[in-house]
């Protein structure tokens, strides 16, 4: 469960979010809106990467401002560009990196990493240099690095923007099968069929918040 209460935010003089009140309990929630409407800022708040200037955010009952590390342990985040998210040289090492605080032995970490890679279609790539994977594979790797920690919530900020149509579909389908709550920021409206709830942002405000069909219809009209 994720709650925003009267959340506002600004950079310098520019207000990027105002009066956001949301309680998100659905399993599949999407955020859509024009460029600069505040989606990424809102998504980052769920992980404590940005702290709200006004109001408060609660994530699974925790306060990201005070319990940032506890929140980040339970919330996974997938960024748009996997190149900046993959931090270690090989796919296996990168997934194992997520487990470095787990107290598991190096060998056990490597084994789990391989298991997760295999589960999401990267079996046999553990030793592969991460930067030589294709864009879609890199994004899968970024996802694996999060899922190996079994988070309760997964936030994805435009994870499919750099992918081709087939990989886009595959990625979103994969998200659909996960047990965790998923918050997805996206510009790919046709991927949202299976979603439970779509929140439309415009200039930092929530302007629609509904099931996909009506919400997207509103958004399309807004865009003109």
């Amino acid at each position: 469960m994720i709650e925003f209460e009267g959340v506002g935010h600004h950079y310098g003089d520019r207000t990027v979010l105002s009066d956001v009140d949301l309680t998100l309990a659905e399993r599949r929630v999407a955020f859509v809106g024009a460029n600069g409407s505040g989606k990424s800022t809102l998504a980052r708040m769920v992980n404590g990467l940005v702290l709200p200037a006004e109001g408060r955010v609660r994530v699974l009952g925790l306060d990201p401002a005070k319990q940032g590390n506890a929140v980040r342990r339970r919330v996974g985040f997938v960024f748009t560009n996997p190149d900046s998210q993959i931090v270690m040289p090989t796919a296996g090492e990168d997934v194992a990196f997520s487990l470095r605080r787990s107290g598991l032995s190096t060998r056990e970490r490597a084994r789990r990493a391989e298991e997760v890679l295999a589960e999401y279609g990267l079996g046999g790539y553990a030793e592969h240099p991460a930067h030589q994977l294709s864009g879609g594979q890199k994004q899968l790797l970024a996802l694996c690095a999060m899922l190996v920690l079994k988070p309760d919530v997964l936030v994805c900020d435009e994870p499919t923007t750099l992918l081709d149509l087939r990989n886009k579909r595959r990625f979103v389908e994969l998200l659909g099968r996960l047990d965790q709550q998923v918050l997805l920021v996206t510009h790919d409206l046709d991927l949202l069929g299976g979603f439970d709830r779509v929140v439309v942002l415009d200039e930092g405000r929530v302007v629609a918040d509904d099931e996909p069909e009506p919400a997207l219809a509103y958004y399309r009209k807004l865009a003109g």
Partner: peptide
């Protein structure tokens, strides 16, 4: 009065 954004300086 605008408080400048308390960006979580990571």
């Amino acid at each position: 009065r605008r408080v400048s954004a308390p960006r979580a300086s990571l």
